[in-house]
Computed example of a mutant assay.
Amino acid sequence: MGFDMNVAFGAFGVIFAIAAAVVLSGFVFVIVMMVRNAKKVRDAGHDPFTLNAELTNRVLASEVLAPAAPPQTLEQRLAEVDGLQARGVISAEEHAQARAEILKG
């Protein structure tokens, strides 16, 4: 009893067919998912081909990435309270209370 080449090539053919079927089903799955995602995006009123650019522009234009204003110094905060009193926005009592809170820290 020797080595039978037909059995070896037959087994290789079966393994190759299984591998090809797995790869092909993977391609089909990816294509189906891409079509479903594109349909969802289109149904939401967006262009699936420019969605990344749209989202990037919205994030860049939003306040999420805007630099935070530097904190005011003690002098700036006191000047703001003085300005509010000078314009009549706050009373003398409110001015005194606000200055005391600012100076207290």
Rank of each mutant, 00 (worst) to 15 (best):
L103G: 07
V64N: 02
A38W: 02
L55P: 00
D4G: 04
L60R: 07
A100S: 14
P48Q: 14
E54I: 04
G83S: 15
N37S: 15
G10F: 02
V59T: 09
V30P: 01
M34H: 09
T56D: 10
A53H: 11
N57I: 03
Q97H: 08
A8E: 14
M1I: 13
G2S: 14
L78N: 03
E93R: 09
I31S: 12
A98P: 00
A19G: 14
D82E: 12
I18N: 08
A44C: 06
R36S: 12
V7Q: 12
S62D: 07
Q72E: 10
A96Y: 00
T50W: 08
L60W: 10
V41P: 03
E93K: 07
R58W: 02
P70G: 13
S25C: 10
S62R: 02
G26Q: 09
A92M: 00
A53C: 01
E54Q: 13
A17H: 02
Q97A: 10
A61K: 07
A38K: 05
H95S: 10
A68Q: 11
N37P: 03
L55V: 14
G105Q: 01
P70V: 13
V28F: 09
K40Y: 05
M34A: 08
K40C: 01
A44S: 10
A21Y: 12
A96K: 02
K104R: 15
Q97M: 08
A68E: 12
V7I: 13
V32P: 03
M33K: 13
N37F: 08
V32A: 15
R58Q: 13
L60T: 05
R77M: 15
A79E: 09
V14C: 03
R42H: 04
T50H: 07
G26I: 04
E101G: 03
L24E: 07
A19E: 11
A20Q: 05
I18Y: 05
V23I: 11
R87Y: 03
A20H: 05
K40H: 09
D47H: 12
D47Q: 06
D4C: 02
P71E: 09
V89T: 11
N6W: 07
K39W: 06
R77E: 12
L74I: 07
I90N: 00
V30D: 11
L84D: 01
